[in-house]
Design a protein around this nucleic acid. Structure first.
Lengths: 328, 328
DNA sequence: CTGAAAGCGCTTACAG
DNA sequence: CTGAAAGCGCTTACAG
């Protein structure tokens, strides 16, 4: 037996008020006498009434939906990010419309649903938007925020870790410990995270007149494992390896172990992200902790503080290094 | 400069047709002459017109949205599941409204957004619904499907791996190899996956008159690592360990390694799920592959084949064992 | 504080 | 094949 969804009209009839009044009871800030409010609320409760968000959204243009787009990548970091976003957005009364993409750049077609449903803001993590798409979103006054990415060509908000300075600090740490044979394994080289971490890291050593080895990875475990394996087989046993993210560092770590190279005694390994796995006893990876919670908070702030697109903000958060067992 | 979202009315004016006609052009199956269709489509294109899904949903009760609820757990398996769901649902024209929960049971309050937005179906993975919530959803004729879970008390669809028979096969494999000192590490004991895998596994050995050791885990790496570590320290070195999922098996595997127990020579280890990590060279875990793609397909089928709630279906898929380096 | 009415952007019988 | 009109379930001026 299918109950019909009850509308404000039905509540109104039973409560002996107008439908407008019922609406007011469910509109924060609208003026209703305490007596009517209680009466209506009681009936609404009984009837299991819930305002229809579609109708409301149609008229207010406030849909309370946020579009979240994420690239399909096997990095647990983004799973955590997604979880935190969803929870915090809900706490603010937003629902999240979720899109997973397989493309490097999110395409028009994938963003169309966001438009159709009048999302109030779009958050993109670990993927880029074509500037055309950003422009279109902004035409409709939908603020766009890049999470853990930035792009000089895109006029939109961006929240990320200050990757350059973080990588710089990591470089300083390695330098001060006296290591000179150093390897950096990049992530996907077209991502701002990999570029910035590489820049911060290499610039430090360049200033010291030290050449470091760059291995071009792609943010996957497998690639990093193989790069390290090949390097080792070729006879190069560096003193320090910095991976552009934890997954990358973990791949390198496993390749070292396979060769029975002692970590951290012979080679130290450092990652970036602090995914759950990195604290597993078997890995116990030293890494840079991204302040995810704070990054998410800032992102949500950007949406709620009706940031206008004409004046996009770039937020960079610091994070901190955590020393575990892959460094001395 | 903010462009206004264009409505069907504006397209109609420019195309010299009625708004109804514009609507028909965007309604699959509605009758419009080829000539008008082209004319309207051309103008719509120019104006960047897109039907408003909210208005459409309000009237048709077809919102093309599916609610997906997932428990906040650190299992990469569910990240894959989420990705596949999102992609496949989009391919069918659905958008996904996503909710992450921290509770074991999904509560009314968390499902309310689904109701407000008139989702057409609800999919729940790795969490349970209270029967009250299921009832409410069904009152409104919204089909509910449990993914990777089942619950005898809930009258709703369910799609999962046939955990009992899979665990049974794993038991048979272990038995035939001649191992007799066997450990099963459970997952969260209140989940159907853990219960079924335990049942399938222990029943096999019970029939053979063999007692196996049950360690109560909770589907986390840490718990399983510690359980195994403690067991080893207590002097018990089993010949075979079956973890209720891969994360569990990985925790056991690392504890064995820490003790320098050779896998698979001294102890074999088997998991369940086949998460990406399990194929990493350092782990190379033998495990049961859940047929995720197929499971997702079946779940989506259930929604689209307007399954009615009065006659819920239970789908169990087989999957297969994959032999890697933690078994002989 | 409250009701009647207009309107959000659509779909869908109903005529023609 | 097409248009005029009603209506989906709301919000929000406008009066009173």
């Amino acid at each position: 037996m299918v109950k019909k969804v009850v509308s404000a009209m039905e509540v109104a009839k039973l409560a002996n008020v107008s439908q407008s009044t019922v609406s007011r009871v469910f509109t924060p800030g609208a003026s209703v006498s305490e007596k009517t409010r209680e009466k209506v609320l009681k009936i609404a409760e009984e009837l299991n009434y819930q305002p229809n968000a579609l109708a409301r959204g149609l008229i207010t243009k406030k849909t309370n939906m946020v579009g979240l787009a994420m690239k399909d990548i096997q990095n647990p970091f983004y799973h955590e990010v997604l979880g935190i976003f969803t929870k915090k957005l809900r706490a603010q009364g937003y629902s999240v419309l979720f899109v997973y993409t397989e493309n490097e750049e999110i395409q028009q077609e994938e963003i169309n649903h966001f438009l159709e449903y009048n999302v109030e803001a779009v958050i993109v993590t670990d993927a880029l938007l074509s500037s055309k798409v950003v422009a279109k979103l902004q035409d409709y006054d939908i603020p766009v925020t890049l999470f853990n990415r930035h792009d000089k060509n895109l006029v939109c908000n961006s929240v990320s870790c200050d990757n350059i300075s973080a990588a710089n600090e990591i470089a300083a740490y390695i330098y001060e410990k006296g290591y000179r044979d150093i390897v950096f394994i990049t992530g996907k080289i077209n991502t701002s995270t990999s570029q910035d971490r590489q820049k911060g890291f290499t610039d430090f050593f360049k200033n010291k007149g030290i050449d470091i080895t760059i291995l071009e990875g792609d943010y996957t475990y497998e690639k990093s494992f193989n790069l390290t394996k090949n390097m080792l087989e070729a006879g190069h046993r560096p003193e320090a390896i910095f991976g552009a993210n934890d997954i990358t560092a973990l791949g390198a770590l496993d390749a070292l172990k396979k060769r029975n190279i002692s970590v951290p005694d012979e080679t130290i390994v450092i990652g970036f992200d602090d995914i759950k796995m990195s604290s597993w006893p078997n890995y116990s990876l030293s890494t840079w902790v991204q302040p995810i919670e704070q990054m998410v908070d800032e992102t949500i702030n950007l949406l709620t503080s009706d940031s206008n697109n004409d004046n996009p903000k770039t937020v960079k958060l610091k994070g901190h290094f955590i020393h575990r067992k892959t460094t001395k």
